[in-house]
Amino acid sequence: MAHTDMTYSQQQTAAPKRLGIKRWGGAVPYLFIFPWIFGFLVFTLGPLLFSLIISFFDWPIVGQVTFVGIDNYVEMFSNDPLFWKSLFVTLKFAALFVPLNIIVALGLAMLLNQNVKGSAFFRTAFYLPSVISGVALAMIWSWVYSGDYGILNYFLSLVGIEGPDWLNDTKWSLVAMVIASLWGQGSMMLIFLAGLKGIPKDLYESASMDGAGKIRQFFNVTIPMITPTLLFNLITSIIAAFQQLTLALLLTGGGPLKSTYFYAMYMYENAFKYFKMGYSAANAWFMFLIVLTLTFLVFKSSEAWVFYEGEMKTKKEKAKPKRAKRGPQASREGSSI
């Protein structure tokens, strides 16, 4: 079982000695990442710190600015039911959306990975919704979901089901939002597809020689081999789920009865409907910390389940003659995120 072998060995990889680094006094890597550092300092860090500062102020867009200490944070946790409500809605959405999004995107990618004729057409079809602008998307979905006059219920009625008034029914509105959001999975599908195409055929061949069926091949070859892609898609899905705003803003406005009132929307309204910039900044920082924590946990866990072939290969050759050489560098490599 070649793959399980890789699984273990990956973590014990001894990184090969890097050449040509020390001579440059270690400045080279920083030069490579310099564009990002510069952009981060200028376009991100400054504005971000500014928003941290204003989160300690009562900061209306127009009018008097007053320092209020941690009042905004206290208000948020102890006095604002909408904060908890919107947080709960977002968590519920994320719990539904993230796994479904990955399953759908991976499913479609695997369908497309079967050497089908006309794959260019199918890929484009699956990606189509991703090129449509948000304004039009919301209109299309409102036409789909309308209770009495909607196309979805029209089709349901053909098979004898009386559909709900999707967007005006608290039980269904969030589900409707999840479905609508899944429609835009095109990028993720494409990334999965690229990952799937990268799996060497011989791995499947040797697996099937080992007597592994299709399902075992999927779990023992496909999944391990696309873990870097999976990690990427998982994290971007989580972030997307927490930042979901456009659809809520354009389609439901958070309703009915706040059932689709996402945290991002709560933040947005505090800023641009109620003009409480300070409070909104406090909201944002809290969300930022939540997503950061989640991502951090996913990354920590990824050491156990993500395999980078670049490192595996090196290992395979190095490790065969000498088993698991550990060094100070290796442990750092192991903790690479």
Binding site: S142, S146, D148, Y149, D165, L167, N168, L251, T252, G253
Partner: peptide, 20 residues
């Protein structure tokens, strides 16, 4: 009366235009 949609949905105006 019928409940008509929120912000971006098929609005009462749209349904009025449909003669419904």
């Amino acid at each position: 009366a019928v409940l008509t949609g929120g912000k971006g949905q098929q609005s009462g105006e749209d349904i009025f235009k449909a003669g419904k």
